[in-house]
Amino acid sequence: MYIPKTLLIGLKADDFRHPLDFQATQALKQMPGLDIAVRNLLGPVAEQFFYLNNIASSVLVGEQQLPHLHKLLLEACSVLDLEPPQLYIQQNPIPNAYTFAMRGKQPFMVIHTSLIEMLTPEEIQAVMAHELGHLKCDHGVYLTLANLLVLAAGLLPNWGTILAQSLQERMLEWLRCAEFSCDRAALLAVQDPRVVMSVLMKLSGGSPTLSPLLNLDAFIEQARAYDEISKTELGEMLKAAQTQQLTHPVPVLRAREIDRWASSQEYQTLLEKRKKEYNQKTEKMGGWRNW
């Protein structure tokens, strides 16, 4: 059953940005010349590369092309108070979605067909909102570099010897931290933590046939078991080694973070504050509207 969502008019990135994202971003800003190098040197080339790739091998979603997906995107943008980016659907057997955005340029997101095939419409919208979180948090410059590093990893197996090791480690750490903020954006858009956690569960062990059979409560309990490992020094070391080269935090950790934030006073206060402001504005306009 569809539940109307509170439109978060005036929502700012710092209203929901995860503390780890803030800390990691501040650390990157301390690296001299990094922002300028990406924006003026790497950015324009990467922008053209990804744009041409999308035009050549993806489908641009719109009112006349997969309109049901277009509607999900517009609704998520309305809730998050954000201008809609372009949305491309790409045939790919690896479930994934990513965003590209340089300031002042046309942002876009790409979702792979294999991801869409195993998610419900609400879960697809949560994925879209997660990607919108990158735009809302202005992750564009560093996200560009992160995407290039991931691309280089596929094309150049020994990329770690070409790029400075410290930059590689910092960028991966930043990307993992940024994902927590984007998960929060997904929650704000769908306003149901179980939808977001279900996406993470299906990314862990889902498929078009298995996804409907998965048990979300069992997955949440699994996340608690992951926490138990941290109670020993060896367990904490093993977890750190496991995640050091990952672009995303492990799904159970992301699910735990969303579960905690959804239960927090911070989240509830944010929704109530935005709902009150929205109601005041719509009353002045002589009407009241919700998605």
Rank of each mutant, 00 (worst) to 15 (best):
H18L: 06
E272W: 00
P193I: 04
T232E: 03
V38C: 07
E266D: 14
I220P: 02
S57T: 04
R256D: 09
L172K: 11
K71D: 11
Q191G: 09
T6S: 02
T113G: 00
Q222P: 01
L149H: 03
Q168D: 08
D138Q: 15
T243S: 15
L69C: 02
E221V: 02
K276H: 07
H112C: 06
P212N: 10
P121A: 03
G160P: 01
E131N: 10
Q86F: 05
E75M: 10
Q65Y: 04
L119H: 10
W291E: 04
P208Q: 13
S211F: 15
Q191C: 12
D259S: 15
Y88K: 00
V195C: 08
N279L: 10
L156T: 14
I116L: 15
P84L: 12
G287R: 09
T232M: 09
T113F: 01
R103V: 13
P208S: 15
K5Y: 02
C137G: 08
L149D: 04
L187A: 03
M109D: 05
E228F: 03
L132G: 04
M31G: 02
W291K: 04
L172H: 14
N158D: 04
Q265I: 07
A164V: 03
Q244M: 15
S114T: 02
T25Y: 15
Q23T: 03
L214A: 12
I94Q: 09
L200K: 06
P85M: 04
R184Q: 01
L175V: 03
M201T: 08
P121F: 03
G140N: 11
L119F: 10
Y88V: 03
A152Y: 05
P95S: 02
C177D: 08
W159R: 09
M109W: 01
A185M: 03
H139M: 03
D259F: 11
Y226C: 11
S181E: 01
L52C: 05
L42Y: 11
W261H: 02
L11C: 03
W159N: 00
L74W: 04
R176Y: 01
W291H: 06
Q48L: 11
K105H: 10
T243A: 15
Q280S: 08
Y2H: 08
E47R: 07
T161D: 06
Q191V: 08
N279Y: 07
L214Q: 12
D217P: 03
L175E: 13
E173C: 09
Q86C: 15
K29F: 13
P121D: 04
Q23P: 00
Q64G: 12
V195E: 04
L151T: 11
K136V: 05
C177Y: 06
D35W: 07
L52N: 12
R224W: 05
E122N: 13
E221F: 09
S263L: 12
